[in-house]
Amino acid sequence: MMVTSKHPCLLAFLLLSLLIFSPLPASAAERLSGSLLITGSETMAPLIAEMAKSFERLHPGVTITVQGYNSARGLSDTRTSRNSLGMVSRALKETERDLKAFPVGLDAICFIVSGNSSVKNMTRAELAQVFTGKASNWKQFIGRDQPLKAILRGDGRSSTKIVSEYLQIPVSQLQGILIPASSAITIKAVAKNSGAIGYVSFGEAYRYSSRQGKIHMIALDGRLPTKASIVNGSYPLIRVLNLVAKGEPTPLAREFIKYCRSKAVADMVQAFDFINLDL
């Protein structure tokens, strides 16, 4: 039977029945389900873990595991499909273009010294001397006779690759005390030794120095690492924080990437003292 406007009551009843008995479209929270494993950059891991917790609250059917190692691990796990997404805290190289990168924020690599050190600025040439073992005393830089201890991160760290490229010295030729563990351990080692110098994430150094005051970041050729100098591009060691995928991300991974690049998490990025992207 065709229902026309001649039967307004019946038409209203049928429409109401459709509303009552037809299944309603599932909400986004109900549609999304499954699990993601995200591995890689130790610098990015705490931020991505916070984003994951927030995403899980929005989508109860989703479970996300975040494991921090280093950027090299994030790349290798992604290439061999041992994860859902990788975390790589630097730009991808030409030889890594088989992967797709999705920037979620900006950071920088900064050189740090003890809070009671008088070192405020160093040139690229001076840092090259320090990290090749050609300088072992601060006297030639600041006139103070004090043993100099250069602290290195592991060669799988994006920070080491960035420093290597900046100083134009192969990673294999960098010299110093190797601390392959987290940036936090490097920061604490520098804070406890007035003759030490190391390099770490700007975000982590900024948080530690603002709360503890036991380290300070030095300028590179007069350019101090600050949030403003990272935003305007004047600081030389800026790096991008990437989620990476092998080919097209799965629907769930794509939704999580979209969330990590949205304004909904802008406060989280700022809370970790990284820089939001204008996406």
Rank of each mutant, 00 (worst) to 15 (best):
E165K: 12
A28S: 15
T95S: 14
N70Y: 00
S17L: 15
V88D: 08
T95C: 08
A125Q: 12
Y208A: 08
A181K: 10
V113I: 07
V163D: 07
S76W: 00
K134C: 01
G247C: 02
M51Y: 03
G156T: 09
I218D: 11
L16D: 15
R254E: 15
V231A: 13
A264D: 14
N70F: 01
F274W: 01
E255K: 01
E30T: 15
G195K: 05
G68D: 04
I257M: 07
P46H: 06
S76E: 01
F141P: 08
A49W: 02
G86V: 01
S114G: 10
S136L: 11
R211I: 02
S89T: 07
T39W: 04
A196P: 09
F202Y: 14
R79V: 00
V265C: 06
Y208C: 00
I151R: 13
A135H: 02
I38S: 12
V200G: 04
P23V: 05
A72H: 04
S17Y: 12
S118G: 09
I257V: 05
A196I: 08
L167Q: 10
Y199G: 08
T78R: 00
A52W: 10
S182I: 02
A184T: 08
M217Q: 06
P60L: 00
A45H: 05
F256H: 04
I177W: 09
R223F: 03
V113N: 08
P170S: 09
I218K: 01
P180I: 02
M44L: 15
K53E: 12
N276Y: 00
P170N: 06
M2R: 14
R124Q: 15
A184M: 03
P23T: 06
A181E: 12
M1I: 06
P251C: 01
I179A: 09
P46M: 00
L24T: 15
L47P: 09
G233F: 03
T43V: 15
L252C: 10
M268H: 02
G176M: 09
T65M: 09
S84D: 14
L24S: 15
W138G: 08
